[in-house]
Design a protein around this nucleic acid. Structure first.
Lengths: 224, 224
DNA sequence: ACCCATTTTTAAGAAAGCATAAAGTACCCT
DNA sequence: AGGGTACTTTATGCTTTCTTAAAAATGGGT
């Protein structure tokens, strides 16, 4: 589930360069070369973040931002020319999440993208539940019947994944992908072992059964 | 409670003119005619905003800004000569809130002053607490059980960030972004070290535990 | 009921993450 | 210039977490 980035930039050479770097980092990238189509695509709901040049044909970046902000709070990072300082100020005022002046080091751009995406993911601080179990994602806290349960990072991530897919059976492979990362090599029974850890801290400790094994398929959380 | 504005400007004629206009608008105004005394007054804590000329005897405006920013987040609007674009850029980069080029219309200056003061009043005027700890953001002061705790700027900013997100776990990267800035390069454990400083000044000195480590994730302030 | 594939459990070594002290650097003040 | 303060980096030991592997248990098909 790579993040989708929309790049709105009319200088094709720069756009191609940035696109390449972003893809290399594992992002999905779409491009628009003018303000009008950029706005249109940004509103499509397909993207997680927009990189928006200020100087654009058809509709200026500022204008795109202003219109976008009427309907969406999609994260936007403005790309501004070196000496157009005024843009910086008014851009942030009209709702950009960040700005970066051209020419920029790609590393800095990447850092800002990460920060903007992180900010968004915090925004949607959600609570997941299953029976008596409550997970507060941003607080990184899990309670059962009001009582706090201490989980390590892997345990937490695994439980998180299962809760996000409550009722759906997840294969070991799918869990490895999402919790351990796709670049995991070789045979391992880590998932099984961590399921065991979770069961002993949750199911056994509180005397019910949330985590079910589906033989030959995988694991699932069911609240019954 | 009129806002106090410090005007640092060596052209006396201009200074007198601006002072008159500001007073007419209901602001309290103090003046300084060189960088050194300007910096000194700015640091006194009496002012809500500084108008800072770039060209100053003794200590340039840029230098004043730089030193001021080491200890304070007081809003600063730079006054720059017509075409000194370089100054504009590096001024904002080094932490000015806005700039205006001379000669300027007084109405524009007033608008920017209002904007800067508004921005500040949104960001602060706030008291943050966690257990027995109280942070007065504006006064840049922290007390525990009524007893004042001396913190350096970085320590303060880090604690501030943690308090603003009390209960939410913040990653090292997020803290680096918000406290140290994006342009931080390379590997560093500065966050860890500053957490240690805070712990020794707060948790250890007063015998409780506010700052918690969430292994594999980051740090969080929890008051329980 | 028995067997085999699958899953669970256990345990121990490896690795990662963290805390801390101390050295190093930059910068200002006098 | 020298001392002081704030900040950053480096190094080290320790603790927790993760991984692996192998033994024990379980379940379902025949």
């Amino acid at each position: 589930m790579a993040e989708n980035i929309l790049l709105v930039e009319d200088e094709e050479k720069l756009a191609r360069m940035v696109e390449m770097e972003l893809r290399y980092e594992g992002y999905e990238v779409a491009k628009a070369f003018d303000g009008r189509s950029g706005l249109e695509q940004a509103l499509s709901g397909k993207y997680d973040l927009v990189l928006l040049d200020i100087m654009l044909p058809q509709l200026s970046g500022m204008e795109v931002l202003r219109r976008l902000r009427r309907e969406s709070d999609l994260p936007v990072i403005m790309l501004t020319a070196r000496d157009s300082v005024i843009d910086k100020v008014s851009g942030l005022d009209s709702g950009a999440d960040d700005y970066i002046t051209k020419p920029f080091a790609i590393e800095e751009l990447l850092a800002r993208i990460r920060a903007a995406l992180r900010k968004r993911s915090v925004r949607s601080g959600k609570i997941l539940t299953a029976g008596d179990l409550v997970m507060d994602v941003e607080r990184h806290q899990v309670t059962v019947k009001g009582q706090s349960v201490e989980l390590t990072k892997k345990e937490f991530d695994l439980l998180h994944q299962l809760l996000e897919n409550k009722g759906r059976v997840l294969t070991r492979e799918a869990l490895l992908d999402s919790v351990w990362g796709f670049d995991f090599v070789g045979e391992t029974n880590s998932v099984d072992v961590y399921i065991r850890f979770l069961r002993s801290k949750i199911d056994e400790a509180f005397g019910f059964k949330l985590i079910h094994t589906v033989r030959g398929v995988g694991y699932v959380i069911r609240e019954d």
